[in-house]
Design a protein around this nucleic acid. Sequence first.
DNA 1: GTCAGTGCAAACTTTTTGCAACTAC
DNA 2: GTAGTTGCAAAAAGTTTGCACTGAC
Lengths: 168, 168
Amino acid sequence: MDKKQEPLASLRERLTRYMEERAMRKTPERYEILRAAGLANGIFTIDGLMKIMQEDGTFQVSRATVFNTMELFCDAGLIIKHPLATAAHYELRTDSAPKAYSICRQCNTITRVSTSTAKLALQNLHIRYFNIEDKLLYIHGLCRKCQAKNRQEARKKQNTIKQDNNRK
Amino acid sequence: MDKKQEPLASLRERLTRYMEERAMRKTPERYEILRAAGLANGIFTIDGLMKIMQEDGTFQVSRATVFNTMELFCDAGLIIKHPLATAAHYELRTDSAPKAYSICRQCNTITRVSTSTAKLALQNLHIRYFNIEDKLLYIHGLCRKCQAKNRQEARKKQNTIKQDNNRK
DNA sequence: GTCAGTGCAAACTTTTTGCAACTAC
DNA sequence: GTAGTTGCAAAAAGTTTGCACTGAC
């Protein structure tokens, strides 16, 4: 069995249990969307998920249903929602361990980063009267690509100024 | 001098420097919006900021300009943007120390929390090739109020079921 | 058979953009 | 005077909602 499918199977069970407890209908759409989220393999957007389902092909679900279902999955604790400036990003939530992400303020790319050091510190962090479900650390800044891009543009600009000076 | 005004004065200077370096216009609107952000005293939204400026009265700025200016302030590193599910929240950025927030998944309230323990662990956290500007820890879960509210509703529901059973 | 859930389109909210008018330089 | 900014309104993008239809129970 594909190793990646294991957490997905667990999530599927949790979804079933969640819906049964609340007497909700176990529609094929809901399971299909969860499956597609598994195929996404990491962080994804609604658009991305729609594309995956279209390419995968076997099943068509409307955009509105995907939105509604994502909210259900969030409430059920099956996915994590990252409400970024551009569009909400999601990812499967296989455990409740603290997670860290880098977000580039220029290209808005979000990337999961592994920070075992920070994780340990955050693990036993509590807040009085607040029932913690998730700890998400967002590290904002400039990614490698954008740093390089900016350096190059600064160089170009510098050259233009030099040319201007030579012309005088 | 009002103690609270000190960081604001520093931010004003940084704004001036930022704009001068880029030959941007030091318009009264920009300084006025920064002042209003100081009056907000914590985390605020665009709507909240507009209201503050209306009540404060001396100056009127259009919504679009506030949005544009907030982006400028972000780029200048004067404010932190929290792109939440409901609407973006902002706050003045007086230093680059790691910050933590609790966000209730039910009422969407965001609150700054002091976590000296986590701060220390996050302080010396680095990512290869990534130029870190801010570290924001979001702690998702249920706030005290919503927990109480949910408990109360569960109790009410339980009573209804009991009544149903008695009727039979 | 019933009603929760879906699909579609339309509404809604937040944010961005185009353009004329303005004003800081 | 000129070009960067503002204000307004209109557009865009993302998300939510209303309603008729469908299918899970």
